[in-house]
Design a protein around this nucleic acid. Structure first.
Lengths: 341, 1351
DNA sequence: CGATTTTCTACCGACAATATCACTAATTAGTAT
DNA sequence: CCGCTAATTAGTGATATAAGTAATAGAAAATCT
């Protein structure tokens, strides 16, 4: 029994997508899944539980289900027009449609702990969890923050990542993908690229605009060989291109709090050589780090050129600094409410 | 008078031509053969007023004359030409309006840059470079008519630089310069003054025979008058004039400037001439016609000086106190103090106790030694300070009091001077002193002593600064052309270098250090400050220092030979000096650009960061051993806020801890402390207040428009009454309430929280973090909690810092007589110039201040004192009798509060305003001890507050009887409580709704108190929105409901009812509010015809540029400064800084204009009322102070003040102010147009379409609204042309706008925004204002009898 | 031209985002005539 | 010496930053089709 795949005709009747964009063309999906080769990870798809966040019109959900018929496939969609669409298109289907907000943390605790509607299996972090997959579409321009939060959850090993190394197939704006996947020295290298490097193993799978590729590292592209499709395969058509990314958690071992402080502050002046930029870490930082860093060629590098390993090294030095600042969080109170009576 | 006008017109037309051709305008450019050639006539008269670049005439047009001015209602033509004559193409960077500014702004920037370069070069004696700068300045066409001033500056410096240059050679140079290098420039009277000065001062090189003819020749060459030449006191010193008048007798004393006349007269009488130039017999006095009018009378220091003249100083002989004349101005300051023995002598002559006498004889009356009680010791009763207030009070007779005050005044004059000028040096001396003391005790004490540390930093920083200045100077002396191969640092240096060279490096170091310490814990940063704020503050402080230094230097220069004479003479000199200062402060034309300030600040701060070190302690994370080391005291870094970076300057924790326990009085900007003597009277828009520090009358928001209007009004003499009121406020002497101070001080030193003073906290205590792998929601809650704590911590700390400043200033002024100079915000409300500690501050500040003068309570005073206490407890809505009895029923509490403020029951702490209540308790307690309470001498200011002052004005404006009754404009036997009344109305509404079964209403029914609605009623006057009010009410309701969401829902519901009730109760007020709002909206969406090209760049969508402008009844022009802000990043040494670009010309922010007009208009009225009342009270001899709508005076004078303020209110509202405003708007925005919609079907619309079609054919493209505006503009110009034929052509012209002229009811034709789409079309309509709401029958004069109007 | 998206959110005193890169206008340098 | 072009630079505008949309949500204005 296969689930009917919503067609573009029905989809295009929907107007409001809250800035999100969805690939609707099934042929592109075929290519994507072929490339992903999920059966390599999920040897027993029948045991797989899939969480589909912001499924939108559910094309991908239907195709996925038809291909792998997993044990459980839950769609989390709160936006009422889309929720209604899903309900109308998937009557009597094995897809579980839940009207909950993927943005809200409580959605997950309710789902897993309270209502036990969707309970993934914990697997030890030696390999990718082969019974739990999350698929998400966070292509809204304003929702980038959510992706970043999920990323930091990998670092914290909380949220869905408490069940081990869960793979995630994540749709995002191509600009976000570019930022995340930027390699040391690249123009768009930023803190979140380092986060990605530190916590994950990430590949670009597909992208909706070949032009966008020039923003990515050419060597990596060779390796990834992403699928290109056109803006016409997306609905709504207008707007910026999107990309699909496969994200696997990776092993890491460092003090996240200090590492966060060091990367955050160094990446502000990302084109300033380490020999001078270290002062922005605290009183007398330059002097300390200049004396501690033995490899003088590292001092000539700029933060934008550093690999995560180098950041980890700097973090180690930082933790050993007797005079390091004791407040690592940023507290700026911009809006002091005026008192009046 | 016609000549210059004509000239400017030519220039304007040329300018416009260039503009159009260069920018490839989209505007209509007719071909020469087109029928409309006439419209682009090259005739300068036609082109003139159209030019968007013709400076002031651009916006300050005929309509912009303040309406309350005498002749303003006359025909616009005459006023218009007046404007053109007086201000055509005036090149003044401050006199710019937005619409006109754009073309010249870039040039302005260049000229400013050149000016500062010039100033710097002259200062560094780089005459050649200076000359080449002059040549550049000469190239700026708009600047030519001002160029001579720059040349004079150069010439003057040249004269000083080449003292032995013979006058003939000098003359040669002058001739050569003006005839070959600067052909278009003519000398002016100042030039002649410089030549005369040169001739006189270096007469050793000029033969005496030559001297007189030379000078006579120069005098004859005068452009305006000899008087004009002689009035250049910045050039001609007093001794110069003395020679001219008394020795050479070339000129008659009558030609002297008024301010120095008395000095010279007295010099003439003195037997010893200052100079020994032989009096040549045959020299004639030059009689030159003097057409110049009397100078505006300047009455500085009137009161104090008059009283001083009858003081006993006269009898004291002063001979023998001759000292060597210092050459250097710096040293002059120290010597320029009065013989203090005189003062001491005077004081000792008064009836004093033996103890007081001893104090005085011990006291060193040396301004330099005793600026203020700023000693870092905690000992308040050190021998060196004197409680002047106590002595003053103890004097038995009025005569003695007067004598005392006058002697004190002379002493204080000197102290004020030192305070404004030498405070940085004083701080430095103190550091040095402490350092040396600490050094004697060993290295550890140096580290422990803050001042010693600062001294070290200072010494380390100084060479760096000097080095930098050296670089700057060398880059100055190089030719500016070879920029190649410069590093970024060097290029930046080219920008700020000229400024940096102007100030003494030592001072800059001190200022930098003090500023950074002052900014500790500001801007919501935990341990530090925002970089942006720091760099700008330092830059500003440096600039301010430079200003006062300049004024002081030129003052010393001019008066250098006349410093020590008899006391009377001294007074003459002091008078003359203050006049001189006013003119000097006025003259300084260069305001440093914001980016330069930032750059200078950053250069200095980065040097300080480099050198300032503190010793620190840390724990090695590995060995766990204690580690000692040295770390920079300051560090530059960044913080994120919502993804935005924020530059932060962090202060090391150890330093912060040290600062918490220190007295930091010195870091308060010394120029801005309260004054020891009466502020300089306001005489024009930029002269008043402090003696050596420039402040402007209006706190403008970087808006050239505001300045332009203010300047025009000031020069027109329209705002003299404003000055009067402001001077009364400034001349009220205060002193610190010592009793209250002692209590506050005790509380403070306990370091615990007390009332609204937060307790001291050294470390932030944060809750432990949950494990990293907790649920994100838990992590989030924790983060939020931490953030709240951090914010609380930082706000507490900054609050405590602020309180510390207040206390320190209060401490410094204990026993002193102090004054608050005031200026105005842009609506005309008055504020003290001195920050931190003033009577507008919080309850504690107010409690710490009392009037210096005491007045006997008298019969009514006691009553008012009691009422005052009741008011402070919040019982201000009772009958006066009941308030009196409230106080009388608490006599025991009062006694206890006064006698055991901290150990007793603490009744005073339960007051609404506890500190002021405590102050009042102290007085009342003393009163109770008296046999005859009416004889008690009271210093306590008694407040009279308007009940909802905004609504009072609205009620008066609308003639609204109901509203007037509610806000006590109508006599009543008991005061109306608006808030309670509104609460009752809401309650009624709820009851009705509840009966209908409304659930919300049922729940809320009995929870409506006065407090719930109070804030909303209050803010309603300010145009609070529905959403905002909901939040306010939610805050009040939150204790009732647990759930926030629920609380908010109820609030939403309740807000609707509250709004309804207010609208019902103050219906008339709302109609006026709506009218004001609608008018503002239409004005800010209107287009001026001579609109700048830029604003119409996109065809049919203009940038709206007209802001709402009106004139207050006092004649003060008010310009709402709300425009879209354009900020730019400016590079500095540390980081880029985001600051608003003062040269930007931005479209108005219609929303804010609309939202702002109702409150601003009302505030401009209450400000007028206050200033009128202040002026009147001042004339009646009352001490007067105010906090906007709260008027303060002595208890005994409350009755007098009550009459005054009622009369002034009536006077204010005798005219229909709304009507007046509408008329003013009508005048000002007469030819403005707006974009509206018209029914396509009407004849009018068809005619417009026809015109458009014709035009379109001619242009070969579709017409735009811009084209239509262009033609209408032309039409208006023709109509206003002085040539008859032009006017005829204009009258025959038909434009899309002119069609509307004869239409009567446009309202019928115009479609409101709801009109159907196809039948309407966009057209230009003349701007019309809405009809004003009808005025009610309320007669404002009845409030004469309303005892609760203000109470 | 109507629907949709963005922008507010009570006035004044008052107080502020920044680093980097891509692109363009303007100036300078250079070279040849 | 002048004119021309290439090359450099100065200046401007755009974009990303962090990472729960600050405590909040509905109207009005601006923008787009």
């Amino acid at each position: 029994m296969s689930i009917p795949i919503p067609g573009i005709k029905d989809i295009s009747k929907l107007k409001f997508f809250y800035g999100f964009k969805y690939l609707w063309n099934p042929t592109v999906y075929d290519k994507i899944f072929e490339k992903l080769d999920l059966t390599k990870t999920y040897k027993h798809p029948k045991e797989l539980k899939v969480l589909d966040l912001y499924p939108g019109v559910g094309v991908q959900s239907a195709i996925f289900y038809n291909k792998y018929t997993p044990k459980q496939y839950s769609l989390i969609e709160r936006r009422s027009s889309l929720y209604k669409f899903l309900q109308a298109n998937f009557v009597d289907s094995p897809l579980q449609i839940l009207k909950k907000d993927p943005y809200d943390w409580t959605t997950y605790s309710d789902l897993i702990d309270k209502d036990k509607v969707f309970v993934p299996e914990f697997q030890s972090p030696e390999r990718i969890n082969d019974s739990f997959l999350t698929v998400a579409n966070v292509t809204g321009e304003g929702s980038e923050g959510l992706i970043m939060q999920w990323l930091s959850c990998i670092g914290n090993k909380n949220w869905l990542y408490r069940f081990g190394k869960m793979k995630m197939l994540l749709w995002m704006p191509s600009t976000t993908a570019r930022k995340l996947l930027a390699r040391p020295g690249a123009h768009s290298r930023s803190k979140c690229s380092v986060v990605r490097e530190a916590f994950t193993e990430t590949k670009l799978i597909a992208i909706s605009d070949a032009d966008e590729l020039k923003g990515f590292d050419s060597k990596c592209l060779e390796e990834w060989d992403p699928i290109l499709f056109s803006a016409a395969d997306i609905w709504p058509t207008k707007g910026k291109p999107i990309a699909l990314v496969e994200m696997d958690p990776a092993d890491f071992d460092f003090d996240v709090e200090n590492w966060d402080y060091v990367t955050r502050h160094l990446m502000i002046l990302k084109r300033t050589p380490l020999s001078t930029v270290m002062d922005s870490l605290g009183h007398g930082g330059q002097e300390y780090f200049n004396s501690r860093i033995t490899d003088k060629s590292l001092l000539k590098k700029c933060p934008i050129d550093l690999t995560n390993d180098e950041f980890v090294y700097l973090t180690k030095l930082f933790t050993e600094w007797p005079f390091k600042p004791d407040i690592l969080m940023d507290f700026v109170d911009m809006y002091q409410t005026e008192h009046s009576g | 008078m016609l000549r210059p006008a004509y000239k400017s017109l030519v220039k304007a037309s040329l300018l416009q031509k260039r503009l159009i051709s260069s920018k490839g305008s989209k505007l209509y450019k007719p071909s020469p053969d087109s029928a409309s050639t006439i419209l682009l006539s090259e005739d300068p008269l036609v082109a003139a007023s159209s030019s968007s670049s013709s400076a002031t005439s651009g916006i300050i047009n005929s309509n912009d004359f303040p309406l309350f001015n005498k002749n303003s209602q006359n025909t616009t033509n005459t006023t218009s030409s007046q404007w053109n004559n007086t201000s055509d193409l005036e090149f003044d960077p401050f006199n710019k309006s937005h619409a006109s500014a754009i073309t010249t702004m870039t040039r302005t920037r260049d000229v400013m840059q050149l000016w500062s370069l010039l100033e710097a070069c002259l200062q560094s004696h780089l005459m050649k470079r200076a000359f080449s700068i002059l040549e550049s300045l000469y190239m700026v066409p708009e600047h030519k008519h001002r160029f001579i001033e720059d040349y004079n500056m150069y010439l003057n410096a040249f004269s000083k630089n080449e003292p032995t240059f013979p006058i003939l050679k000098m003359n040669e140079k002058l001739t050569n310069d003006l005839e070959t290098n600067f052909k278009d420039i003519n000398y002016n009277d100042k030039t002649l003054a410089i030549m005369i000065h040169h001739a006189l001062n270096f007469h050793s090189t000029t033969s005496s025979m030559l001297l007189i003819p030379t000078i006579s020749a120069y005098l004859k060459m005068s452009v305006n008058s000899v008087r004009e030449i002689l009035s250049n006191l910045d050039i001609l010193t007093v001794s110069d004039l003395n020679i001219l008048v008394n020795d050479l007798k070339i000129i008659s004393p009558s030609q002297l400037p008024n301010s120095v006349k008395p000095i010279l007269e007295s010099l003439a009488l003195s037997s010893t001439p200052v100079n020994n130039i032989p009096n040549e017999d045959g020299s004639k006095k030059l009689e030159v016609k003097d057409g110049s009018s009397e100078e505006r009378k300047v009455d500085v220091n009137h009161g104090s000086m008059k009283t001083a003249s009858l003081d006993p100083l006269r009898e004291v002989s002063l001979n023998g106190s001759t000292e060597v004349l210092p050459k250097d101005a710096e040293k002059l300051i120290a010597v320029d103090t009065i013989g203090m023995r005189v003062i001491r002598h005077t004081l000792l002559g008064l009836s004093l106790t033996a103890e007081q006498k001893e104090q005085i004889s011990k006291f060193k009356f040396d301004a330099n030694e005793n600026i203020l009680n700023m000693k870092p010791t905690q000992d308040d009763n050190s021998d060196t300070s004197i409680n002047f207030f106590e002595i003053y009070n103890s004097l038995p007779t009025l005569k003695e009091k007067k004598a005392f005050e006058s002697a004190l005044n002379i002493f204080n004059q000197d102290r004020q001077k030192v305070l404004e000028n030498r405070a940085t040096e004083a701080a430095r001396e103190r550091w040095k002193h402490d350092f040396e003391e600490a050094k004697a005790r060993g290295d550890i004490s140096i580290e422990k002593n803050l001042n010693a540390k600062l001294w070290r930093w200072y010494n380390d920083m100084l060479p760096l600064v000097k080095e930098e200045i050296k670089h700057c100077k060398s880059s100055l002396s190089e030719k500016p052309t070879d920029k190649k191969g410069l590093t970024k640092v060097e290029i930046n240096r080219l920008g700020y270098g000229p400024y940096l060279t102007l100030i003494d490096p030592g001072k800059m170091c001190v200022i930098t250090i003090l500023e950074l310490l002052k900014l500790n814990s500001t801007g919501g940063v935990i341990e530090g400050m925002r970089t942006a704020r720091a760099v700008i503050s330092v830059g500003k402080a440096i600039e301010m220092e430079f200003r006062s230094e300049q004024v002081l230097k030129s003052e010393s220069q001019t008066f250098r030979d006349v410093n020590k004479k008899s006391p009377e003479f001294k007074k003459l000199v002091q008078n003359a000096k203050s006049v001189f200062r006013s003119s000097q402060i006025e003259q300084s034309k260069i305001l440093w650009p914001q980016n330069i300030r930032a750059q200078i600040g950053s250069v200095l701060i980065s040097m300080l960061i480099h050198v300032a070190k503190v010793s620190v302690q840390g724990v090695d994370p590995i060995t766990k051993a204690k580690v000692h080391g040295e770390a920079p005291a300051f560090a530059h870094g960044y913080q994120y806020h919502n993804g935005s970076k924020l530059g932060v300057l962090k202060i090391h924790k150890t330093l912060i801890h040290q600062l918490n326990g220190e007295r930091l009085i010195a870091s308060v900007q010394p120029q801005l402390l309260p004054m020891l003597v009466e502020p300089k009277s306001w005489i024009n828009w930029r002269s008043g207040g402090y003696h050596y520090t420039q402040s402007t009358l209006l706190r403008t928001k970087d808006s050239p428009e505001q300045v332009a209007y203010l300047k025009a009004a000031s020069e027109n003499g329209d705002i003299d009454r404003v000055y009067d009121g402001l001077n009364v406020l400034g001349n009220t002497p205060w002193t610190v309430n010592r009793k209250v101070f002692d209590v506050v001080s005790q509380v403070w030193n306990k370091r615990e929280g007390f009332l609204d003073i937060p307790g001291a906290q050294d470390e932030m205590v944060l809750p432990p973090a949950p494990p990293r792998n907790s649920d994100p929601s838990i992590l989030r809650t924790w983060k939020l909690e931490v953030k709240t704590i951090a914010n609380k911590f930082s706000s507490d700390r900054s609050n405590r810092c602020d309180t510390n400043y207040k206390l320190e200033i209060a401490r410094a002024f204990l026993g002193e007589k102090l004054y608050f100079p005031h200026n105005l915000d842009f609506r005309g409300r008055a504020y003290p110039l001195s920050p931190h500690f003033n009577h507008l501050g919080n309850d504690m500040s107010r409690g710490l201040l009392i009037f210096w003068h005491g007045k006997k309570l008298g019969p009514s005073g006691l009553k008012w004192l009691k009422i005052h206490l009741s008011n402070l407890f919040g019982f201000d809505k009772l009958r006066l009798e009941d308030r009196v009895s409230f106080t009388e029923s608490h006599l025991e509490d009062i006694k206890d509060s006064a006698e055991n403020p901290l150990t007793g029951q603490g009744w005073w702490k339960t007051a609404d305003k506890p500190w002021q209540a405590l102050a009042t308790c102290f007085e009342l307690n003393e009163v109770m001890k008296m046999d005859n309470p009416e004889d008690f001498i009271s210093h306590q200011p008694i407040h009279q507050d308007g009940t909802c002052n905004g609504l009072q004005h609205y009620a008066a404006l609308g003639g609204d009887v109901e509203g007037a009754t509610q806000v006590n404009l109508v006599p009543s036997d008991k005061p109306q409580d608006v808030y309670a009344h509104v609460a009752r109305l809401v309650q009624k509404r709820l009851e009705i709704a509840a009966e209908k079964g409304d659930e919300n209403a049922k729940i809320l029914q009995d929870k409506i108190t006065r407090k719930v609605v109070k804030q909303t009623v209050m803010t309603n006057v300010y145009g609070v929105t529905y959403v905002g009010a909901t939040f306010q009410i939610a805050k009040q309701l939150s204790p009732i409901f647990d759930d926030r969401k629920e609380s908010l829902d109820f609030s939403k519901y309740l807000t609707k009812h509250v709004f309804g009730a207010i609208r019902e109760l103050f219906h008339s007020a709302h109609l006026i509010q709506d009218w004001l709002g609608e008018s503002a909206k239409r004005i800010s969406k209107s287009i001026r015809l001579d609109v700048d090209e830029k604003s119409f760049k996109n065809g049919n969508k203009p940038d709206f540029m007209s802001s709402v402008i009106w004139t207050t009844p006092l004649g003060l022009p008010i310009v709402q400064p709300y425009r879209e802000e354009s900020k730019k990043q400016v590079e500095t040494n540390l980081q880029t800084v985001f600051i608003s670009d003062p040269f930007a010309v931005n479209p108005v922010n219609a929303r804010r204009q609309k939202a702002g007009l109702p409150p601003n208009f009302i505030h401009s009225l209450d400000a007028s009322h206050m200033l009128l009342s202040a002026a009147e009270c001042g004339e009646k001899g009352l001490d007067f102070a105010s906090v906007h709508d709260s008027y303060w005076t002595h208890a005994s004078d409350v009755d007098t003040m009550s009459v005054v303020l009622r009369e002034q209110f009536i006077k204010l509202h005798e005219v229909d102010l709304v009507l007046r405003l509408k008329e003013e708007f009508g005048q000002r925005y007469k030819n403005y147009v707006k974009i509206g919609k018209l029914k396509r079907s009407t004849d009018l619309a068809q005619n417009i379409i026809k015109i458009r079609k014709d035009l379109s054919k001619k242009l070969g493209r579709n017409t735009t609204l811009a084209d239509e505006i262009y033609f209408e503009k032309k039409r208006q110009e023709l109509l206003n042309s002085p040539l008859v034929e032009d006017r005829n052509v204009g009258e025959k012209m038909v434009t899309t706008v002119s069609l509307f002229q004869d239409i009567k009811d446009l309202d019928a034709l115009e479609l409101e925004n709801g009109g159907d789409e196809k039948s309407g079309m966009s057209v230009l309509l003349p701007l019309r204002l809405p009809e004003i709401p009808p005025k009610g029958d309320f007669d404002v004069t009845v409030l004469r009898g309303s005892q609760y109007f203000f109470s």
